[in-house]
Design a protein around this nucleic acid. Structure first.
Lengths: 350, 350
DNA sequence: CTGAAAGCGCTAACAA
DNA sequence: TTGTTAGCGCTTTCAG
């Protein structure tokens, strides 16, 4: 690899002039600059990020911290990552994929101590996330995909749960449903502190209240089997529920099985929504489920851009909330009075 | 951040001694070393990767090149990435996530020119991959997850398609099936050059031949709708097929719909295998599909380890092939003579 | 407008 | 066994 000195020699100038010409850090005569650019191009010169970083204390590397894959398919996580990497690339930054383990804070300390990264992108943020405290104390720039309980002072991009819930409720209410059930994520230690579970639950309740339709949310199935059981209990306890939104993919599969076992059909006997899951997942179901698809790649990109913004010029906290996309599938329809009876054919069934 | 000089001063030695003590690059008196380690610990000293890299030409950073997410869910890709990141971390390396676009070679040239990465990890390798040529010419260490047409001289980790196919065929033959069909990935421009599509197709054929069972593979559905159509055509053309392996997740969903539309059931009337897809995906189906799950995280880890091995000490090309895991679900059963007739209940249906 | 020189934090000769 | 010194490739004063 040729260095800045090679370029300087070839152009017959001093290295500092090359640096200036290439970075625009000080005025350089147009003619000189041209010579330098030519020389650089001829040599295929690429400034060394290491040397530059060593001097300038800016590496143009961001770290994306991701926890061990846990729930769901990891599609969402992948999209965060690719969205962030993409945005970083466009702005001349690089993204380091940093797995987290037992002691996230210690690992974060290690990682940032290396002086390798300019800032950190947090995902899977808990309501009270210890990583944010460390980063703030250490004065390390960071942004979150998701948010803590009180994120007002921290840059973040997250789902707009309120708008998402309103949209979903409007959809089912518009179809004529009068009572909606909501199956939240399983109530394990994790989901108890997991923002999306908390916020989605609260906002669906609020949206249903505002829309004046009935609402039930006592269930938190975390698997197909639990989804099926929850569905059976739901029908027993609330026979008047005609629409159901489910957070967990596997639970949704269980609900579908439960509907079929009853001899019911979707959407005739139940309108089923998949909440906060990818449309690619929803397409695997039969019928294709109506989905509230989180804008994961966009959120990842926003998170990265916010972080870079902050690195390049400080300012007030940046916040962005994006609603999920409502992708209407074949699992939404007006409710029927009597279930399990024959109905006019729906979809392309022969 | 404290630097090596701070440590040297605190320990009352020269910086080179600190370096030596910490890296073991030359003998240091036990007592001196202890003092140095203490000083380093007291100051929370972390050597700067940048400075070290600048000097040693080794950054301990690996780049994982990934193409824009295309087929499937991206679960597999995510697992490659996390597996690789994990392995890298364990060996003291970092993983850079590098999105690829229109001109992969040019981007690779750019990335490697920065002097930021020690080596490159390639995934989604085509049978004739131009990136490999560039990397070999440029003398940049790399390894592949997947393989080119002739990968004998390149480090790589890939699925053992032959063993995988044999295992799958043994499974269905063991159940008593006499004729197997195989739905490959869609024949678009991409899959035509995509190793897994080519190799899986060839190896299933070979395994079926070796096992002496019938085999059909004229179909390449790429969506649920195409999967359903392909299934209908399959039944029309080869009514004696009782077992089917499908590569594409969405096509599998279509097959399931087609089976249901006929009034048939899985596994009574058709044994269905999901080939090269994640078990997490298979669990979403009803019934839970038998799956040939690629060891994606392991492959990612192997790829990273191979690359690091090569960086740390050169040697003959390293190759590793890993078979898929056969995860038996509820979609495998012995064939029946007459389809669509009532059958003893299967599974937990009431 | 341009050049010389210092130094970012580290490693690796070379001396002592 | 340890210290001194010269860079790695770049940015950034400070002179000219």
């Amino acid at each position: 690899m040729s260095s800045i000195r090679d370029v300087a020699e070839r152009a017959g100038v001093a290295v500092s002039t090359v640096s200036a010409a290439l970075n625009g850090t000080r005025p350089v005569a147009a003619d000189t600059r041209r010579r330098i650019k030519r020389a650089a191009a001829d040599l295929g010169y690429r400034p060394s990020l290491l040397a530059r970083g060593l001097q300038s204390k800016r590496t143009h590397i961001l770290a994306l911290l991701y926890p061990a894959p846990r729930s769901g398919f990891g599609v969402t996580e992948m999209q965060f990552a690719t969205g962030a990497a993409e945005a970083a690339r466009e702005l001349g930054y690089h993204l380091l994929l940093s797995p987290e383990h037992a002691d996230p804070v210690e690992e974060l300390r290690h990682l940032t101590g290396l002086g390798l990264v300019d800032g950190v992108l947090l995902m899977e943020v808990g309501l009270d996330d210890e990583r944010t405290e460390f980063l703030m104390e250490a004065g390390i720039p960071f942004s979150m995909i998701g948010r803590t309980r009180d994120p007002s002072s921290i840059d973040h991009a997250d789902i707009d749960f309120a708008a998402t819930a309103r949209q979903a409720v409007a959809h089912v209410a518009g179809l004529g449903h009068r009572k909606l059930a909501f199956f939240n994520l399983a109530a394990d230690a994790y989901a108890a502190e997991y923002g999306p579970a908390i916020r989605a639950g609260a906002e669906f309740a609020e949206a249903a209240r505002a829309a004046g339709i009935g609402y039930v949310d006592d269930f938190r199935p975390g698997s197909a089997e639990e989804g099926r059981q929850a569905f059976d209990r739901l029908v027993a306890a609330h026979p008047d529920v005609t629409a159901l939104a489910v957070m967990d993919d596997h639970a949704a599969a269980g609900v579908i099985a439960g509907v079929a076992a009853r001899g019911w059909r979707i959407p005739e006997d139940l309108t089923l929504l998949l909440a906060l899951s990818s449309a690619a997942v929803a397409e695997m179901f039969h019928p294709r489920l109506t989905t509230l698809e989180p804008p994961s790649a966009e959120l990842g990109g926003l998170g990265a851009r916010m972080l870079i913004d902050r690195l390049e010029d400080d300012g007030p906290p940046r916040h962005r909330l994006l609603p999920c996309r409502l992708v209407i599938g074949d699992s939404s329809a007006p409710p029927r009075r009597h279930r399990g009876r024959p109905s006019p054919p729906h979809g392309v069934r022969p």
